[in-house]
Design a protein around this nucleic acid. Sequence first.
DNA 1: GGCACTCTTTCCGGCATGGAAAGCGACGGG
DNA 2: CCCGTCGCTTTCCATGCCGGAAAGAGTGCC
Lengths: 97, 97
Amino acid sequence: MTAVEPRFDAVVHAPPRLQICGLLAVVDTMEFAAVRDAVSVSDSVLSKHVKQLEEAGYVQVRKATIASRQRTSLALTKAGRAAFDAHVAELRRIAGL
Amino acid sequence: MTAVEPRFDAVVHAPPRLQICGLLAVVDTMEFAAVRDAVSVSDSVLSKHVKQLEEAGYVQVRKATIASRQRTSLALTKAGRAAFDAHVAELRRIAGL
DNA sequence: GGCACTCTTTCCGGCATGGAAAGCGACGGG
DNA sequence: CCCGTCGCTTTCCATGCCGGAAAGAGTGCC
């Protein structure tokens, strides 16, 4: 198994974003509201963090009108997963394991 | 084995301090200069972060004059190790293991 | 047209951070 | 003794991130 190259990533490291990435790493896709509740932040705060992750190319934001409701779903991009994995590897390295 | 209670700790989470704690968790005791070099920060920055860790009761700072040289050595306190372990546990939880 | 739902963006005060530089206590040399 | 150095410590300062509150904007329903 090829080990992931440890690489500290400040964008991923910030607490709210680390949680967001952690969630998306597991479920692949999650709706805005669900993430907001899981992370326990306000709409505006989540929106801002998601924007940062999006600008970093780490999450893909899909907007769809389903059942006449606006739904925004989030998902990690390949780069996002790579960055997250690399960051986690770095955390393990720092933590001594 | 009793699992460590996961608990996010902002004092420990900041990158430089996470590294400092990670180092001290492994070696138990390390000199100021060695930590500074390992973490790659300036004297002033390390001093400030150490101070925060000290005020949080996480590291013990021992100053000694050995061989006519001033030596400051750092070590995690019990509380520091507990906080670090708990934080790492929380990171694992967030990272999905 | 008006209202509701779902985010987005703006505005704002507050706190953390790091670099540069001045401070300081302890020695050792001259 | 005074001076310079070593090894941190503290201050000063500029910057950036952060989150809450509130105003905005897009879409569909009535």
